[in-house]
Amino acid sequence: MKRLVSPLLAGCLLAGLFLQPVALRAEYGDVVINRQAEKNGMRPVVFPHWFHRIRFRCKVCHAELGFKMRAGSNPITMTDIIEGRFCGACHNNDIAWSPENCDLCHSGKPGLPTGVFGGHETSGPGRW
């Protein structure tokens, strides 16, 4: 068991070290969504929590729209969005701009993993 765990831990630490400079600069609460995007030749999506929470309370997306509060647990596809689910519930050219503006969402650096960025307080190696 120990043999298995230590390389895993080392891997996590290494990944943490490499991610650190990125996480350090990103705005607090920015979420990279990349389950589908890059597989389909698009840039990853960056979701800015700060921008949305100025306009909506958490409850709107996390209770009404059914976004689970764990990065990577929402299987969002463009079909969903166009048919009015997930982001498409508001990004429908009525409440917010329509999904035709691909590059406003698909604006992440290629290769970024899905996850919450900018929260250095809990993600730094050796911070606690």
Partner: peptide, 20 residues
């Protein structure tokens, strides 16, 4: 956004996003 390390500055849309 263009400087925050997770947005791609090569993407036109990145420059249209509101800076925090």
């Amino acid at each position: 956004p263009p400087e925050d390390g997770i947005h791609d500055p090569a993407n036109d849309g990145t420059h249209a996003l509101q800076p925090p």
